[in-house]
Amino acid sequence: MREEIEVELVNEQGMHTRPAKLFVETAVRFTSEIEVSYDGLSANGKSIMGLLGLLAYRGCRLSISATGEDAKEAVTALAALVGSGFNE
């Protein structure tokens, strides 16, 4: 199963270290493979350096996709995290 969702980075810092860490912590709770794409690049959603490598800043639209049994739950949880501004 594959699910995909688009979400805007709304927090002040963008995809900085703490947001990347929170994203990965959420992503690893799911067995699905998770990819985050932005600007033609696609990063492993379970890798902090991968996410940081996107160099995505506030206002960027990220596409989060998950492939696996819990794909739907994964994209929902991750989109909620990004959408909430990483609880900043």
């Binding site: 690049l41 990063a43 890798s47 902090i48 350096m49 991968g50 490598g53 996107l54 160099l55």
Partner: peptide, 29 residues
């Protein structure tokens, strides 16, 4: 060269060059 996010570009000679992202690529977690 790069950790976790490798950009790969096909050269006109038919080989692949890999590179990392600015700043991030020479750091590791």
């Amino acid at each position: 060269i790069a950790d976790d996010l490798v950009e790969i570009v096909k050269q006109h000679g038919g080989h692949l060059m890999g590179q990392g992202r600015p700043l991030v690529s020479h750091h590791m977690e």
